[in-house]
């Protein structure tokens, strides 16, 4: 039962990823793409947690945490660049 639900969850997360990816490709502006990228990375965290649950390895949680940290820094850097980036 739980396994079936987890598979379904993975499927819906994939749909969410697909929708955000559509916005990432479509744009039209750079800001739209960064917003979509932000959403994509957060959805990926869910993917990594699902991987941790399915394989039963907690090391993936560390991966998820570092991934979230790096994507946050990436988005902040991209936003700084978009607004002119003098500072």
């Amino acid at each position: 039962m739980a396994d079936l639900l987890l598979s379904l969850a993975a499927l819906i997360a994939a749909v969410a990823f697909g929708l955000a990816a559509w916005r990432f490709i479509k744009g039209p502006r750079a800001t739209d793409r960064v917003v979509a990228f932000d959403a994509l990375t957060i959805i990926s965290v869910t993917g990594i947690v699902l991987a941790a649950l399915i394989t039963g390895r907690s090391i993936y949680l560390d991966v998820a945490l570092v991934y979230a940290l790096l994507s946050f820094l990436g988005v902040i850097t991209a936003a700084r660049y978009l607004e002119g980036g003098e500072e």
Partner: peptide, 17 residues
């Protein structure tokens, strides 16, 4: 609960679109 979470992710994706 996890499934519910992914539903919200999908709604967010729909909002983005």
């Amino acid at each position: 609960v996890l499934l519910g979470g992914t539903l919200f992710l999908a709604l967010g994706g729909l909002g983005l679109v």
